[in-house]
Simulated scan of single mutants.
Amino acid sequence: MLFATHLLAAGLLARRFRASVAWAVVGAALPDLVDKPLASLGIVDLFHSVGHSALLAVVVVPAALLGRAGVAAAVGWASHLLFDAVHVVLNGRAGGALFLVWPLAIPLDPLAIPPGAFFVYYLWSPSFFVEVAIWTGAAAFAVRAWRDRAEAA
C-alpha cells in the first residue's frame, strides 16, 4: 500500500473511533519511516523489516497504555501492518506477509525494490484498485461533509 493511503486510512479510523487523528497518522507513518531508510542505507535487506514486524508490539502495546495518544498511535501502526499484509495477499504474494514476524521468518520472495520502483510495479495491481476505491470513498465523504456544513450555515 502506498504511504499516503496508510496515512489516510489511519486518519479515517481515528475519526471513526474519535481518537486523535494526528497520533494515528504518526503511528501509521512509523513503519515506513523506520524501514525505508534502513533498507535504503543497506542496513537491512528488506523494505518491510523492523518497523513492519508485529513483534514490535512488545514496544507498541506498552506505549498504548500511556493514554489516548498512545492508543491512537498504536492503532495507526497496527492498521499500517494490516493493510500491508492485505496488500501482498491481494497481489498474489501471500508468502510476503511473513514480514509480520520478521526476523523470525523472512518472505521467500521479498519484493526488495526501493519506494520509487515499487510505485511503478504497484500501478494496476489488484490492491492498487482497492486504494483507488479508498481514495474515492474518502473524497465522496469529504464532499458530503462539506455540503452538509454549507447547508447548515
Rank of each mutant, 00 (worst) to 15 (best):
S49L: 03
L100Q: 01
G70V: 07
T5H: 07
D35P: 02
D109I: 10
L56V: 10
V132N: 10
L98C: 07
Y122K: 12
S127N: 14
L38C: 08
H80V: 07
I106K: 12
V75M: 13
L30W: 06
A63E: 03
P31L: 04
A64I: 09
L13Y: 05
L2Y: 12
L7D: 02
A97K: 07
P31V: 05
D109Q: 15
A112N: 15
V61Q: 05
W23G: 03
A24M: 07
P103S: 04
W146L: 09
W23Y: 06
A142Y: 08
F47S: 05
G95A: 11
V88S: 00
A94W: 10
R93P: 06
P110I: 04
V44G: 03
F129T: 10
G11E: 12
S20A: 06
D32E: 12
E131H: 10
V88D: 06
A145N: 03
G42V: 09
R93V: 12
L13H: 00
G95N: 13
L12E: 13
G42D: 11
A9K: 04
A74G: 12
F99V: 03
S49W: 06
V75S: 11
R15S: 10
A153M: 09
A54R: 02
D148N: 11
P110L: 05
A10G: 08
I106Q: 09
A139H: 03
A22N: 11
A10E: 02
G137I: 07
A97G: 12
V44I: 13
L104D: 03
F118D: 14
A139K: 00
N91G: 09
V101I: 15
R147Y: 01
H87C: 14
A105H: 12
V130M: 13
L55Q: 00
A9G: 07
P107F: 01
V86T: 08
L65R: 15
V44F: 08
P114Y: 06
A145H: 00
F129G: 09
P107A: 06
G92W: 00
V26C: 13
A39Y: 10
L66S: 15
L38Y: 07
L81A: 05
A117D: 15
V25S: 06
L65S: 09
F129Q: 06
A63G: 12
A78W: 01
I106P: 01
A10W: 00
G67W: 03
V25H: 01
P103G: 06
L7N: 02
W124P: 00
L33N: 00
P107K: 02
L2S: 01
R68I: 01
G67F: 04
W77H: 10
L41G: 02
E151Q: 15
L90E: 11
R16I: 00
V44P: 10
V130H: 09
G95W: 03
R68F: 00
L13A: 15
A142N: 04
F17H: 14
V101R: 02
A28Y: 10
S53W: 09
W124C: 09
A73T: 01
I43G: 01
A145E: 14
G27M: 05
F128R: 10
